[in-house]
Structure formats: C-alpha cells, structure tokens
Design a protein around this nucleic acid. Structure first.
Lengths: 121, 121
DNA sequence: TAAATCTACAACCAGATGGTTGTAGGTTCT
DNA sequence: AGAACCTACAACCATCTGGTTGTAGATTTA
C-alpha cells in the first residue's frame, strides 16, 4: 500500500526486471520464443529455478506462455516493457517541469503566452 | 550473482524503483530537495523506515544527500533515472532488431534448444 | 508399450527486505 | 545551558525471494 494510487503492476514489472537472469530471459524471448527447458539450459541453475523466474516475468506481464505440444513457449512482451519505460518517462517529465518552472521564475520571461515549451528534450 | 555481473548498478536501481514509497520520494525530490524528516512526515511510517528507503535510493544512485546544518537534503538524480531508461531502451532495440538477430542465431546454431551455454554481453 | 522429455508444483532453506522500537550524538532555538 | 529537532544506526521480527530437491502428470519418441 502506502502512497495512495501506486500501480502494483509497475511494482511487479520493475521488480521482475531487477534481476539479471530475468532480464536475460526477457532479452532472449523478445528475439524469439523459447521453451522453459531451452531457457533453463542457458543458465547455471536448475530447471525449477528458471521456471520460477519465468513465472515472475509472467506475473509481471513481461512474458506470456503459449502451450505447444508438451512444451510451453515463452514470448517476450514488448508492450509491457514500453509501459515500464513510460513510468520512467513520467519521472523525467516531473523533473523537466521543475526546470521549466525554475526557468519561468528566474527569467521573468516577458513571453507569457507560451507555457514552457522552450525546452528541448 | 548469475549471468552478467556487469549490471549490478542496473539491478540496484530497478530494485529501488520497485516500491511506490521510494518512487514517490524520488518524484518529490526531483522537484526540490527535502530533508529526510520532511519526507518522513509525508508517509504513514516511522522516520527510520523512510530513512531506510532513502538509503536504498542513495545506494542505487537515484538520490544524493547534502548536509545542510543539522538536516541532510535529499536530491533526486535525474541522470540515474535516464540510465535505467536506457537499459529499457536497449531491450526495445533488441526487439526491433529481432529479425536480424534471429537470422544470425539460426545461422550459427540451427538447433532449437542450443545445449551450449553462450552467455550474453 | 516403454523410455525420454517437458511442465508444474510442493516442501524446504538461507539470506534479503521492510517494517518496528530504542538509543546516541550533532545542531538549532530559547 | 537546556530543550527541541534531526540524523544515524542497532536489534529485532515477519514475510518475501531465490535457490534447492523431489514428485507427478502429460506428451513425444524409440
């Protein structure tokens, strides 16, 4: 809880990304789908451990699984990556607004009609 | 440990961001510096708890503290936010290049599961 | 059919996390 | 000087996390 609205989805996604193995799984499955077993062979840990990592990514919406015969293929979900990026962009926007506000105050800009906007990237 | 090891900083930053209280602290201190006590008054938890959250953000490089008399002012560090965003952009870039990468991977290693252990990075 | 493979989940364990209270020392205000 | 305030850290606690092994069922292959 804490801090009112707080999107739990963002929490889960950021937390899921805060692990190098999971980031690698996502990186690889963004390129092409792989089975959990195929993924497990890439890392120095048990199948069960990799299976858990995939579950964490799945709960965060960063990957999806599609059953194909006896194996289930893990697909990276670029849209969720973009959603996380958007959360960071929001922080950047907060910072930018603060700079714009400072600029207005310090410059005592005679141009009242154009709110901020004179700040590029 | 596991895998890369080069991106422990990214780990710490993403982990630090995966908490709504900490994201709010960062949001607020990106606008203007606040003392730890001033921050603590904004959240329904003890000073010590907020102090710990600030420490996590500080270890991640997302905020810095500057002593001002008896209080220490917490400043949000936009550059670190941008560094995290860059890590996500790298994932997006992987996705954009997926066709080319897939071609290369399949050319090198036609076997689906790839029993070898090629580590990334 | 039998063996091999793949997924899934349970039980267990050590260490990290997120909160608490308490204590101590430095700085500012009367 | 003394009170009030702020930071810092230690000890403690419950829960979560990231790994392990073991087991079971479904599907594919020999």
């Amino acid at each position: 809880m804490v801090v009112g609205s707080a999107d739990a989805a963002t929490d889960r996604a950021l937390r899921a990304l805060a692990d190098p193995t999971r980031r690698d799984i996502l990186r690889v499955t963004l390129v092409r789908p792989l089975s959990v077993s195929a993924l497990a062979r890439r890392y120095p840990m048990s199948f069960a451990a990799v299976h858990k990592h995939v579950s964490v990514l799945e709960d965060a919406g960063l990957v999806t699984k599609r059953r194909r015969g006896r194996e289930s293929l893990v697909h990276g979900e670029i849209d969720r990556v973009r959603a996380v990026r958007a959360a960071l962009d929001a922080l950047e926007q907060v910072w930018r607004d603060r700079v714009a506000r400072m600029d207005r105050i310090l410059a005592e800009d005679p141009d009242e009609g154009a709110p901020d906007a004179h700040h590029q990237r």
